[in-house]
Design a protein around this nucleic acid. Structure first.
Lengths: 223, 223
DNA sequence: AGGGATCCATGATTGGATCCCA
DNA sequence: TGGGATCCAATCATGGATCCCT
């Protein structure tokens, strides 16, 4: 892969997204000297990592935003044939063993407060190499969105704090859901049950429902 | 390396140690199709891993004993020209962020309660490939040893529980000491200070002083 | 449809210990 | 001399997400 330096300013980052908008994944991959996988089932994170490299995101520095100096998180959004988000959007892992914190101080809110969304064509009929990169959207959470996520988050965290993590399913949460996030269903992490006993449970992640990300696209595009 | 199946019984494990006693490291390495490093400064764990392979220790399954089915831990002991332990013996990492536990329930005690000690010649004048493997000793903690370690452990853990981890030096502990255990001094781990604030500190390990391991050798060999 | 399960790459951590200067 | 610092290999955990069956 080609190494690209981090953008120094928000303006520079936006310029870079404009420079790749409209390109196919094959075109961008060739610029980065990467090959395009024939299917994503064995390379699920490939598109996101291609975009990261092309824009100069700080490579894999965990517990930090993708663009550290700018405090901006990058999220690709796969679009179906109708131009709507095809999948939920993974945000971060769910803390199972940390001291209680407020929504305002939570890691997930810090991540979501400054996000660069990059829509990518992802109709299954369209071969990977022909899929095109869309126009980026840089957002902060609106007061309304902040309130929507806060309510879901508080309900989730209340269940976790009272040891009922295993009662949470993907059905919970209007905009923000919790689902397994693991290598497979045998992966286990420490948690606490209702009686305060240490138990093993599946690692979980926070995911944004498509209705939430669709609304963000709608703020900027007429659909 | 050659794959060796785990020993099924304690007897089988002992037989295997007898089979390699007296061999040089070069001889054992050749059996395992491994090459001997010219010096250990860039391969510090090499001897231990050679022995693990030769005896059929379950490869690198963290949080489990070396011989899982037997509940036995393997420890090599480097001997100086006088036949005494040349170094302290690393046991396990020091938990900095866990709920308080008793010595009886501690991970370190479970590790030390059933150990197969394997002395290895380690006089610096003796080239690595010529160093010989000694006779193995299988021990359980005696009531006296258990008490000795318990007292040191309790003093250490009391300091950690009250947020004074940074006051602990290798001078503490009669038989069991705490020292840094990290890639280098820039590696940092979360801990809690006296005021309950989260701080960063060096990762630490528990080490047995040489006087402790020397006493174990003395139980079995006249020196 | 979408909830539960899974896949790859890579950085972080652990487990194996010994080094090395004051 | 031994306390503080360090080294390598391999596994684990996280961040990038999409798959796929009911």
């Amino acid at each position: 892969m080609d190494h690209v330096l981090p953008p120094k300013t928000q303006h520079e980052l936006i310029e870079r997204t404009r420079a790749i908008a409209g390109l196919t994944l094959a075109e961008l991959a060739r610029r980065q000297h990467l090959s395009v996988p024939s299917e994503l089932s064995h390379a699920k994170g490939w598109t996101g990592q291609l975009i990261e490299q092309a824009l100069g995101a700080s490579a894999g520095s965990r517990a930090k935003p993708d663009f550290v100096e700018l405090g901006i998180e990058l999220k690709t959004i796969p679009l179906n044939a109708q131009g709507l988000p095809k999948e939920t959007t993974y945000v971060c892992t769910v803390p199972l063993n940390e001291a209680a914190t407020s929504w305002e101080d939570s890691w997930i809110r810090r991540k979501l407060n400054h996000v660069l969304w990059l829509p990518i064509e992802a109709d299954p009929e369209l071969p990977i190499n022909q899929r095109r990169i869309g126009s980026a959207i840089l957002t902060e959470l609106s007061p309304e969105q902040d309130q929507q996520l806060k309510q879901d988050w508080q309900e989730h965290m209340e269940l976790i704090a009272t040891g009922r993590i295993n009662e949470i399913s993907a059905h919970h949460g209007t905009y923000l859901q919790i689902r397994p996030k693991a290598a497979n269903h045998t992966a286990l992490r420490d948690a606490t049950d209702e009686d305060g006993q240490s138990i093993k449970t599946l690692p979980r992640g926070f995911y944004l429902r498509t209705k939430f990300t669709a609304a963000i696209l709608n703020q900027y595009y007429a659909i």
